[in-house]
Each structure stands twice: as structure tokens, then as C-alpha cells.
Simulated scan of single mutants.
Amino acid sequence: MDLIEWLASRSQAVSLVEVVQALALPKSSTLLLLRTLVDARYVTRQADGRYLLIRLPGEPSETNSGWGMILRVAEPILRETVAAIEETGFIAVLTGDWQVRYLNKVLPMREIRYDRDIATQRVAHYVASGLMLLSGLADEDLEAYLRLSVPDEDDPGAIAARVSAARREGYVANLHGRVEGAAGVAAPIRDPEGRIVAVVNMSGPRERIANNLSRVTEVTVEAARRASEALSRRMFKSEKSPARN
């Protein structure tokens, strides 16, 4: 981490000797560390043998979903939204096996509030976050999900209809969630290419959400829009400025 931090402070590519001298590390160990960072695609080795940091941990790459970056840019917006409507907020993503994973949880400052264990992943079509995330799948991937991940007791056609509605409306409102007495609204966080990479989910007691559904939907969609813009700015900055000053 010291090496990554030091590289992040450089505006130009650096040589092996410069790293050794700056961090007072053995040359052989430093070379192994740099090779590890190159293999992990945090650092690139240029034609002249100098090293340049191209991304930080948590930022997207060909093999990294960038969940850390998503959480960093979205969490402040989520906290503002929770404070504004006093309901519980989550950032959720879809795993490689089509489960919903919650990256965080922000609880409101009120006595009666909705809480959930975010260590447990959820079946995607059972929750508002999952339906919104499924709406971002390519048609062939959605068909595979419906074929491979839907239990016999669930109706693939009904699930497909809800996903289509999510694509059309740009949000999902679920007033009859799997948790008795709970309801929620989810809206998509998109990357610069318009792909859904995460969702903002606001949840609370069913009656309170239902009575305030328009407002909850409005602020959820707005939070997701702001998070999408912040993520696009951050990713654009990473692409244009691979070395940090």
C-alpha cells in the first residue's frame, strides 16, 4: 500500500531506482512488488522500463467490477437522501451468479425503521434492487437467468414482465417485499456507457412507503441520477489522468 500511495503522488512514470531510493526498499523486493502491480493492472511498465500507476484499488478494470469506486461516489449521496426522507438506504449490485449484494446500509435517525442483514445475498427477482439490476442484463442473459435461477414455484413470465416494466419506467417500486411489512424503491446507477452497474434502494415500513410513494420514488431516482453523474466524472478522470498529482 505504501508503494501504491507513493506512485499515486507521482505525476510522471518512475524508474525502479527511484522507487527503491524513495521507499528505502530492497531492489529485488521492489521489483517483485512492481511486477505484482503490473500483473494486477494497477501499474503499467512502459517501453523505457519506467512504471506508471494507471488505477487505484476499487477502480474498474477488465477484471474488476469497480464496486469500491461505486460505493465511494454514491455513499455521500445516499446519506443525504436518507436524511431527507428518513428511510433506510442501500447501494446494491449484481454478483456474477445473479445474486443481489448490498455494499452498504445507511439507517435513518428515527425510532421505527427498516433494517436488514446486508451480509446475506438476495435472490434477484425477490427484491426491488434485484429487479432493477436484472433490467440491465442483455436479453440473452436475462433469458439464462429465467431458465437457470428461477425456482419451479416462481413464474418466469411474471418476472420478465416486472423486469420489462423496470426498463420502461426507470425504477422499481415493490410494496410487497419478501420481508413482511417492508417495501422499497430502487433506481439504477449507470456507468458512462449507460450500463446499470448498481442501484440505489430506499426501504421502509410498507404503510409509510406506500403513503409517501411519490416522494420516495422521486428522491430515489434523483439520488441514482446524481450517483451516475458522479461515477461518470470519476471514471472519466481516471481514464484521462492515470497518474495522480
Results as ranks from 00 to 15, higher is better:
Val20Lys: 14
Arg41Gly: 03
Glu18His: 04
Leu31Ser: 14
Leu31Glu: 13
Thr81Phe: 07
Glu18Gly: 01
Leu34Ser: 03
Asp39Trp: 05
Thr81Asn: 01
Thr36Asp: 12
Leu56Gln: 12
Ala13Tyr: 04
Arg79Glu: 14
Gln12Pro: 00
Met69Val: 00
Glu18Ala: 14
Ser29Arg: 15
Val73Tyr: 07
Ala8Lys: 13
Thr81Arg: 07
Arg41Trp: 02
Ala22Thr: 00
Ser29Ile: 08
Leu78Pro: 01
Ser28Tyr: 10
Thr36Glu: 15
Leu25Val: 02
Leu33Asn: 11
Leu53Tyr: 00
Arg55Trp: 07
Gly49Gln: 08
Ser9Leu: 07
Ala22His: 03
Val19Arg: 10
Arg35Ala: 11
Ile54Glu: 12
Glu80Phe: 10
Val14Gly: 01
Glu62Arg: 09
Arg10Trp: 06
Trp67Thr: 08
Ile70Phe: 11
Val43Asp: 02
Ile70Tyr: 11
Thr63Asn: 13
Ser28Gly: 08
Arg50Val: 04
Ile77Thr: 05
Arg50Leu: 07
Ile54Thr: 15
Arg41Asn: 12
Leu7Arg: 11
Lys27Ser: 13
Ala74Phe: 11
Gly58Trp: 05
Asn64Asp: 08
Thr44Gln: 12
Leu52Ile: 03
Ser15Thr: 15
Asn64His: 01
Pro76His: 02
Ser15Ala: 02
Arg35Trp: 00
Leu53Ala: 08
Val43Ile: 07
Leu53His: 00
Gly58Ser: 07
